[in-house]
Write a protein that binds this DNA or RNA. Sequence first.
DNA 1: TCAAATTGCGTAACCACTTACGTAATTGTT
DNA 2: AACAATTACGTAAGTGGTTACGCAATTTGA
Lengths: 160, 160
Amino acid sequence: MDIIADLGSLAFGSRLKRMSEIGMQSVQDVYVLYGVDFETKDFPLFYYLSQKGEASIMEISEVLKVTHPAVIQTAKGLEKKGLIISKKSAEDARKRNLKLSKKGKNLLPKLEKIWTEIKALNNSIFENQKHNILEALKEIEDVWAEKTYIERFKEFHRIG
Amino acid sequence: MDIIADLGSLAFGSRLKRMSEIGMQSVQDVYVLYGVDFETKDFPLFYYLSQKGEASIMEISEVLKVTHPAVIQTAKGLEKKGLIISKKSAEDARKRNLKLSKKGKNLLPKLEKIWTEIKALNNSIFENQKHNILEALKEIEDVWAEKTYIERFKEFHRIG
DNA sequence: TCAAATTGCGTAACCACTTACGTAATTGTT
DNA sequence: AACAATTACGTAAGTGGTTACGCAATTTGA
């Protein structure tokens, strides 16, 4: 018996959090399996830089939808590992731009192979679902984006 | 554009985490709306005690699938608010049993009303989904429970 | 044109968990 | 009965995010 799952919509947040942790750890296990020194939590930033080339702290913060201190902290870790480098922007002295280092670029092909394999497995899992999780998440995100939850709550229960 | 969502299965963990935070905050807004001094994160423990009556730290830890220090910490907060009380077990001096206090029981009807309203709104959202999120989560949990991700990964890619 | 508002970044403190480790009580084995 | 193994709980430190706040650089607008 899983009381959190049984509670359905009420413990929705707690349930998502728990699944998020399991999901992140699972991917971490794959990096370990291949002996690659890379952390799951760094994936969004590292991947974005691999695609975009170069980006400022705030741009990354907005694209990844995390706060800018989170970006700074993640970047600090990746800089310490030598996977990314940063330099002040020439156009705007307030900005600091991040990009992959040589070492980061060298690691990229190995990571991309792993990412492809993970994607293949996940897709095979998701494709067999009666209720596709990615579709389901997208639908919920759209609902939340259209109107805040609390607004919707007030309307639904005729409050205010 | 939402790069995390676009990445689909690769940023699955990050995405769940973000949604979990939004979901928890949304429910918190409802408590605030009703002027009730209750925190979303305390819901699973408080709810379980309201159903079970009395339970030890480890029992709660197992049922809610969080570590025992997490239970202790959450319980500490609820005790400080006077919503739960605890006493050493008579049968086993190692155990400490938690249960709702008078104040906690008094608050319960108000909370139950709120929970019912949240449930009603959420169900109305979920029922309109083409891909039901609760069903989708359940399917994924079952897949993960059947075999660890890394085992499945090795088999899928014929490794080891 | 120059003062006010805004923007970008950095740091500090906090939050809700986790892992690691220690101690006391109970249980199992012989 | 005694002692080794296990179990329940507590605390400390770590993690990966957050909010709050401050400062310097840029942009706005009277």
